[in-house]
């Protein structure tokens, strides 16, 4: 897939609000995926730190064993996510200049997205749920 190589560069001009128009959604998949992958990576990082902190506070042997296993799994997951992001070109730890450029483009895209009218004004869908007393 071609978008894997340069996911975010597709955001050339200011983002058009008519994002359902095909030509305006160019580059969207890479943008969406890299954002979600970054969120995923940050979660994995927090997971490692949280598990390690918990380990230093817990004495119960069974709990320690389980959390140590969790910590190991979390470290493996972190390795896999960062490897995937490097392969897809969403993460450049060995190329700081490239990474900074990418971060700025992502930040700009996020700012543009924040100004978009993505959802209907009224998102109360309570009528479609079985919550009569809500």
């Amino acid at each position: 897939m071609s978008y894997e190589k340069k996911p975010i560069n597709a955001l050339k001009g200011p983002m058009n609000n008519d994002y359902l128009e095909i030509q305006n959604s160019e580059g969207m998949p890479g943008l969406v995926d890299s954002t979600i992958a970054l969120n995923f990576l940050l979660n994995a990082k927090s997971g490692i730190k949280n598990c390690a902190t918990a380990l230093t506070e817990i004495a119960d042997p069974e709990a320690r064993k389980e959390i140590h296993n969790m910590l190991n799994a979390q470290i493996d997951l972190h390795a896999q996510i960062s490897e995937l992001m490097m392969n897809k070109g969403w993460f450049h730890p060995y190329h700081v200049a490239e990474q900074f450029k990418l971060d700025l483009v992502s930040a700009q895209a996020a700012v543009q997205i924040s100004n978009m009218q993505l959802f209907p004004g009224n998102t109360s869908r309570l009528g479609t749920f079985a919550t009569p007393n809500y």
């Binding site: 730190k49 598990c51 960062s82 060995y94």
Partner: peptide
């Protein structure tokens, strides 16, 4: 323990 965990989370 905490320092190592932080370092690992920044490792590529």
């Amino acid at each position: 323990v905490r320092n190592y965990a932080v370092a690992i989370s920044e490792t590529a």
